[in-house]
Design a binder for these strands. Structure first.
Lengths: 171, 171
DNA sequence: ATTCCTAGTGTTATAACATATCATATATTC
DNA sequence: GAATATATGATATGTTATAACACTAGGAAT
């Protein structure tokens, strides 16, 4: 998986349905290692494992789905086991929470600070992560006009990704 | 309460902390009556009551908070009692769901079709409802560029409303 | 009037998502 | 190695939402 950085405002694009996902996972774990080392955080085996499970696909995954998978290797994992790991990962921006689905998704670029803008495919459940300045600006402009002090934005767009649209119309 | 319509993109503004809220409720109920009559929907006492409870403030209210209040007059109300009414009200756009809070808020203008854009005050919990074309366009533009077919937008902005900001800085 | 149908609601149970609390273990620092 | 802080284990509970089936009232068809 190759990431395009710089001034693009796409943090993580939709991946082809047949991309090499193991590489995505490996990249994400490597990025997390670096990120934690840099900030002196303890990236424990449990946290690493939970992050890996969140990355099991590009789609959002629920805490209890994570729990179930987690139990393959940790028989007595309980909800707090998962939620504590998720809290850690969220706090350090390694994952995001999709509010409209009560689910979690890996962050496409933990090094870069950004707000939550997501395109979510209803069909394949993949998520693309954005940091679109135009969207942010449009929100800020309106908020400013109303004297509203923005602290946090949630933008979650449901629809059909290009690949699923193509597959649907082809047959 | 007076509503400004036309080309403004503010569906429901923040209300002064000391506005005449009974009028808001009365207006909302009247609008709902009209809306249901026009579409041949049965606006039953239960649904009316639940809508009234949702409108008990301009802030989002949780289903179980509604349930508790509902029980003042309907002793054996149960979760489905509330959720079915909420489903009806949502389906006919009389209320909106705030995803990031798992809560519900009255719709400021049921006659007008619009997507969900909300400014939510962390302090007084009031919600302003928008239909800002610039925000919608910014989202569409980026989505189009990615071949993403938008079906539904959720924009929820947390922060501090003007009045609360003023009160905070004044002491 | 009887039957049938439907929309709405009642009732019970359970699913799905999340946190509180206290105990235990492991790492770090001195 | 004792003291402290951090991480995890374990149990219980809180919060949000739906499934499934029963009952009722009111209109339509005969």
């Amino acid at each position: 998986m190759k990431k395009v950085k710089g001034d693009t405002q796409i943090i993580a694009p939709f991946q082809s349905h047949k991309h090499d996902h193991e590489q995505c996972v490996a990249d994400a774990l490597a990025a997390a290692e670096i990120c934690c080392k840099k900030e002196g955080l303890s990236f424990t085996p449990l946290r690493r494992l939970v992050l890996e499970l969140v990355w099991s696909s590009h789609g959002p995954i629920g805490a209890y789905d994570i729990l179930e998978k987690l139990r393959d290797s940790r028989r007595n994992a309980a909800p707090p086991t998962v939620y504590r790991a998720l809290d850690f990962l969220m706090e350090h921006r390694l994952i995001h929470r999709i509010e409209s689905l009560n689910a979690y998704v890996g962050c496409g670029d933990p090094e870069r600070h950004h707000g939550g803008q997501f395109l979510i495919c209803r069909d394949c459940h993949a998520v693309a992560e954005l940091d679109d300045k135009a969207i942010g600006r449009a929100v800020s402009r309106r908020a400013d006009a109303l004297g509203f002090d923005v602290q946090q934005q949630t933008v979650e767009v449901i629809g059909l990704c290009a690949e699923c649209t193509a597959e649907t119309s082809n047959g």
